[in-house]
């Protein structure tokens, strides 16, 4: 699962949805792999306004990446900054959580990630 995708996921438990603690999910015992992906600058610039920047900062730090700036770059800033483009591309598009868990900060439920696929099926008592 891409780090980009994690930015659009919260806990699958219905009663967690209204809690801000259910997003972002927290990686635990995460084994990361890096894919070789061609940089699509326009796609990154276009996706930027859809990304929850605060959540991405949290995820980035939790995965051991350098701290992201407090504010997201503007489209112009991103286009003019080759290093930031490359860094964001590496983090969002190339970095995959291959094995490990995703933990909800509200209910504590752990979702397994195996072979790059996160499983959000809930045990019956949580449905």
């Amino acid at each position: 699962m891409k780090v980009l995708t994690l930015n659009f996921l919260s806990c699958a438990v219905k009663s967690c949805k209204s809690s801000s603690d259910s997003f972002p999910l927290h990686p635990k015992d995460a084994e990361l792999v890096s894919d070789d992906v061609e940089l699509n600058q326009q796609l990154l610039v276009n996706l930027l306004p859809r990304i929850d920047w605060n959540a991405l900062r949290t995820t980035s730090t939790e995965l051991g990446f350098p701290q992201l700036p407090e504010q997201p770059p503007t489209a112009e800033e991103l286009q003019a900054d080759a290093k930031m483009l490359k860094d964001l591309h590496t983090l969002l598009m190339e970095t995959q959580i291959n094995e490990g868990k995703l933990v909800c900060g509200h209910c504590g439920h752990e979702y397994a990630v195996r072979e790059g696929i996160a499983n959000f099926l809930l045990p019956s008592h949580l449905v």
Binding site: K2, V37, N40, A118, F120, L121
Partner: peptide, 9 residues
């Protein structure tokens, strides 16, 4: 390049 999948109900 920006595709992903997961298991969910």
């Amino acid at each position: 390049v920006a595709t992903d999948v997961l298991v969910a109900d």
